[in-house]
Structure formats: C-alpha cells, structure tokens
C-alpha cells in the first residue's frame, strides 16, 4: 500500500513551523517522519502523518499551501551496510533518488528510508524483486488516503 507524503510551503519566519506542529497536534495527528528542505528565503516541510487525509484536511482548512505525493518506504536492517544495499540496487537501474530521509530506532531493529523517486511503483517493484523490505501504511502505523478510499 502506497505511502503518501505531505509537502507544506514554509515561509521564512520564526514560528511558522510551530504553527503547523501545533495545528497537527491539536487535531491528534502524529508525525511518523519529518524532513525540511530550505533555501535562504523559504522552505518545504515534508512529513509522513499518522492520518494523511485528516492532516490534508486540517492544512487546507487553515490556508496552508501543500501537496501530497506518493513516496516509497523501505525497511533496511539498522546496521552497517543496510542502506548501501538499497542504494546499490537503485543505482544499478539508474533510478534517481530525488531526496531521501529516514526513521531510525524502530523496535523491530529496522530503519525505514523514505525515498522520493519519479516513478514510485516501478521502484517498489524493483526493490521487491531484490528482496528488499517495503513498508506499508499499516507497518508504519498510518492511515493513508488509499485505505480511506477502500473503506
């Protein structure tokens, strides 16, 4: 099941990030992963929310500018060489990783890598074929929009 990441526009201003975290916290939304990319002028907050549709609703209603897109979540052993194996597979097939961030310290001894690639479905298939451990929404403890649509 696809994992959706939410990307939020961040104005370069003290307190802007705290406004978003307060909003999500106030609506009972937990953050599974978070990453910020910034320039001197503005930034983009990327997050994996425990309840993606709800997070989108809250952000929309509060006038934030954001987008939601599919990413690939891969579990790798939290040990030397764990990440390397994953990246070798992708490099061999010339799959460009636009950016990547991680969730460490999971109780099952895994580290999860969140990958942004141009074609998530293809990358997922390739990784699966190489016995990589792809994490679904349930494993990360999140509710995605796909799930809502199925229900």
């Amino acid at each position: 099941m696809a994992i959706h990441q939410i990307s939020v526009f961040l104005e370069n201003r003290a307190g802007q990030l705290a406004e978003i975290t307060a909003l999500l916290a106030g609506n009972g939304i937990d953050l599974r992963a978070i990453n910020i990319a910034e320039t001197s002028d503005y930034g983009v907050l990327r997050l994996i929310a425990s309840h993606e549709p709800e997070a989108c609703r809250v952000l929309r209603e509060n006038g934030f500018i954001f987008s939601s897109g599919e990413v690939v979540a891969v579990g790798v052993p939290d040990e030397p060489g764990g990440l390397n194996r994953l990246l070798q597979i992708l490099a061999e097939k010339q799959i460009d990783v636009q950016y990547m961030y991680s969730i460490f310290g999971q109780p099952n001894g895994m580290a999860y890598m969140i990958l942004r690639v141009a074609a998530p479905a293809e990358a997922s298939a390739l990784l699966r074929a190489n016995d990589m451990h792809l994490a679904g929404a349930a494993e990360l403890g999140i509710v995605s929009s796909d799930q809502e649509r199925q229900e």
Partner: peptide, 15 residues
C-alpha cells in the same frame, strides 16, 4: 504570496 499553482514538492521547481 505563494499560490497552490506555484507550489511544488521540489525546491528546484519553486526556485
């Protein structure tokens, strides 16, 4: 003001 049409997940595109 940023608009939804000008926003992207990619910093390169916004820039």
């Amino acid at each position: 003001e940023m608009t939804p049409e000008h926003f992207s997940d990619s910093l390169a595109e916004i820039t």
